[in-house]
Amino acid sequence: MQTVHRLLLAAGFVALSGIVSLLAAPSLPAALVTNWDAAGDPNGTMPTLLALGLFPALTAGVVLLLAVVPRIDPLRENIAEFRAYYDWFIVVFAAYMFVVHAGIVAFNLGYEFDFTYLILVAVAGLLYYVGVLITHAEQNWFIGIRTPWTLSSEAVWDRTNALGGRLFKLTAVLALVGLLFGEYAIYFLLVPALLTTGVTVVYSYYLYERIERGSDATS
């Protein structure tokens, strides 16, 4: 039942996004600003009806997909071991999408704020929880740092995801620090995120080679 309650909470954020769209629609222009550059300047638009429907529909689709994953993963029994953390990730993701959607609507209603800063704060929150999630994730095919080496060795999985969890949390903190650096703020997110991806892939290969060679040497 706890899983059902958490999924209902995620669905609540989808519903809130839909309500925001319905309430704001009469007051919005024919096209909405939906893209911003690194300096926070608008640089792209989308037809209003499409934009208002896109985010709630996209969020609903992803939430539904995430809800199905624990049922279709061949290692579903491992997901059950950290299911609470996984369910809360679905909630955090839905909340993130709601914040983005509400931010776009508010900006187009004339409220003045730096949209890039809003996104950076929201992404930082999402990434921090990703760090929490993968730290607790057991070996599976959908969630966590999945490389040929982590999927081939439980020890490599555990150690790689432990490192990845710390790095994702650090990336989130650096993204917030970047808010102090104006138009360069986005790089405090992108560079650490790319480095985290590269480092964890290389680390998983290194660990696998060391563990496998160690096993061969002792056999």
Rank of each mutant, 00 (worst) to 15 (best):
M1S: 02
Q2H: 13
T3W: 06
L7F: 11
A10D: 02
A11C: 09
G12L: 05
V14C: 12
A15Y: 12
L16R: 03
V20I: 13
S21E: 03
S21W: 13
A25C: 14
A25R: 15
P26V: 07
P26D: 04
L28P: 04
A30K: 12
L32S: 09
W36A: 02
D37A: 01
D37K: 08
A39S: 15
G40P: 04
D41G: 13
D41K: 15
T45H: 06
M46T: 15
T48N: 09
T48C: 08
L52D: 02
G53N: 13
L54E: 00
P56F: 10
P56E: 06
L58H: 11
T59L: 10
T59H: 02
T59S: 07
T59Y: 03
V62F: 11
L66T: 09
A67R: 09
A67G: 13
V69S: 00
R71C: 04
D73Q: 05
P74S: 10
R76S: 11
E77C: 10
E77R: 15
N78V: 09
I79R: 12
F82N: 05
Y86T: 02
W88D: 01
F89Y: 06
I90W: 03
V92G: 02
F93H: 04
A94S: 03
A94Q: 07
Y96I: 01
V100F: 14
H101K: 03
A102F: 13
A102T: 00
G103A: 03
I104F: 05
A106N: 01
N108C: 08
N108R: 01
L109F: 04
E112Y: 11
E112V: 15
F113G: 05
F115P: 10
Y117M: 14
Y117A: 14
L118W: 11
L118G: 10
I119E: 05
I119N: 10
G125K: 04
V132G: 04
L133N: 00
L133A: 00
I134L: 04
I134F: 04
I134C: 07
N140G: 00
I143W: 14
I143T: 15
G144H: 11
P148K: 04
E154P: 15
A155W: 12
A155L: 09
W157V: 07
D158F: 15
D158P: 07
N161A: 11
A162I: 12
G164Y: 07
G164S: 03
G165D: 10
G165N: 00
R166E: 08
L167N: 04
F168P: 04
F168M: 06
K169D: 05
K169A: 13
L170P: 08
T171W: 06
A175S: 10
A175Q: 07
L176K: 00
L176Q: 00
G178N: 00
Y184Q: 13
A185T: 06
A185F: 00
A185S: 05
I186C: 01
Y187V: 14
L189S: 07
L189F: 04
L190E: 05
V191R: 01
P192A: 05
A193M: 12
L194V: 11
L194Q: 01
L195Y: 08
V202E: 01
E209C: 11
E209M: 13
R210V: 09
I211T: 07
I211K: 11
S215P: 13
S219T: 08
